[in-house]
Each structure stands twice: as structure tokens, then as C-alpha cells.
Amino acid sequence: MLNQAILVFLKELRDNNNREWFHINKKKYEEAKKGFELFIELSIEQIKAFDPNISGLRAKDCLFRIYRDVRFSEDKRPYKTNFGAFVSKNGRKSSYGGYYIHIEPGQCFLGGGCYMPASNVLKAIRTEIFHHPEEFRGIIENSEFKSHFTEMYGEKLKTAPRGFPKDFEHIDLLNYKHYAVSKMIDDKTVISDQFVQEIDNSFKALQPLNRFLNEIVQDL
């Protein structure tokens, strides 16, 4: 179970997002990070049971840093106000589809797939869907999948992507900018025993999408 102290720390950080406060409360951060890292270690074992592609991963391979890169941002707050981990073959920087756990007070969610894929990856995914639209539609319109993830994430192109015919019958499947999904989880569930089961059910439903995407990525 995820420790409630993690949400408490993140709420305090949201209200005091500056280096002085963070330095004074560095021990709280380290304890919260350690708790989240342990939870991700357990989640990896959980996911590995139905997706062996992530075998060999450790939590440290999947966790995102809490420090924000503010060099080119108007928002100069130095810290993220969430803990996030992307469980995927080769870890958080991987091009492979995976499973994402996001912990942020009032904005916790589970998600996965390929978010912001590189241009060559995106083109390869679209090409594969172009040749096998029924297979892909069968995955994202499966009743178990849709019970957890109602729609693909993000905005879509308004016209056909370059290189694909505008009159393609399944053009709606090619217009996504991300091949990723997400679902919100309330804070009460996140700090309960129910969250482990929620992860299991949601990510089992997500696994066919990741399998489809990863068969493409591995051939690049």
C-alpha cells in the first residue's frame, strides 16, 4: 500500500515550491521518495507477472526526477509536485510502450502506451495501423480495455498525417499524436489496499496495446 505520507509531502511541496523549504525538508523528501520507490519495486513484480518484457527492471530505472528543468520555461518553480514512474522495457527513457504511475494530490492517474513518440516511432506506428486497422481497433474498442481507458490521450490531427491517403477508411486511427491512455484515480483509493488491485486490473487491460506497440518499436 502507498504510504499517505507521500501525498502529505507533495501537498506541502506544492504550497512551498522553493529551494529553501526543500532544503529544510530534504529528509521528508528522501523518506517519501524511498516509499514511492519501494512501491514501484512491488508494482514491477506485479506487472512482470503478465508482461515479461519488463523483467530485469528496477524502480530506479523507471522513476522520474523531482527536479524541474526550468532553463527554457517561464515557470521557474524548481520542483515537480508529483512522483512518477514509467515501467517499460529499458526504463523511463524508453521508446517502448509501458505503464505509468503518477502520484499527485488530487491528480493521481494510471496510464501508459507511447506518449510523445519520436517522429520515426510515430510514423512506424501509423504505418502498422494502416496495414492492420482491424487489429488495432479491436484492441482499443475491447470492452475490458474501454472499462478502464475510454479514449486515447491528447488532441488529434485535423487532417490525414503526411504520407497517408485522406480517404483511408480508418483515418481516425492514424490521427493521434500520442498512442497513450490514462485514467484518473482518487486519492482515497491511492492510499488504500484497493490501489494494488486497480493497478493490476488496469495494466492487464493495457497490456495488449503495449504488445501491439512494442512489436513495432523492436523492429526499428
Rank of each mutant, 00 (worst) to 15 (best):
His132Leu: 11
Ile129Ala: 01
Pro117Asn: 08
Asn90Tyr: 14
Lys93Glu: 15
Gly154Ala: 03
Gly97Asn: 01
Ala180Trp: 01
Pro117Ala: 08
His148Pro: 10
Pro161Arg: 10
Val196Cys: 13
Pro208Arg: 00
Leu173Gly: 06
Lys177Val: 07
Leu122Ile: 09
Leu157Cys: 08
Asp186Trp: 06
Met152Gly: 06
Asn90Met: 14
His148Met: 06
Asn214Asp: 06
Ile185Ala: 00
Ile171Val: 10
Lys156Trp: 09
Met152Lys: 14
Lys166Gln: 14
Cys114Gly: 09
Gln194Leu: 15
Arg92Tyr: 09
Gln197Gly: 10
Ala180Pro: 01
Ser147Cys: 10
Ser182Leu: 11
Asn142Met: 06
Phe130Pro: 01
Ser192Phe: 02
Glu169Asn: 11
Tyr179Trp: 07
Lys166Gly: 10
Val121Trp: 07
Ala180Met: 03
Thr159Tyr: 10
Glu151Cys: 09
Val181Asp: 03
Arg211Glu: 15
Gly98Ile: 03
Arg162Thr: 14
Glu151Thr: 13
Lys158Tyr: 03
Gly97Cys: 05
Lys123Thr: 11
Ala118Ile: 06
Phe168Asn: 04
Glu135His: 12
Ala180Cys: 07
His148Cys: 12
Asp193Trp: 09
Ser95Gly: 13
Asp167Ser: 09
Ala160Cys: 04
Gly97Pro: 04
Glu169Arg: 12
Ala205Met: 03
Ser95His: 12
Val121Leu: 08
Gln207His: 15
Gly163Ser: 06
Asp186Gly: 08
Lys177Ile: 08
Cys114Phe: 08
Asn175Arg: 15
Val196Phe: 14
Leu206Arg: 02
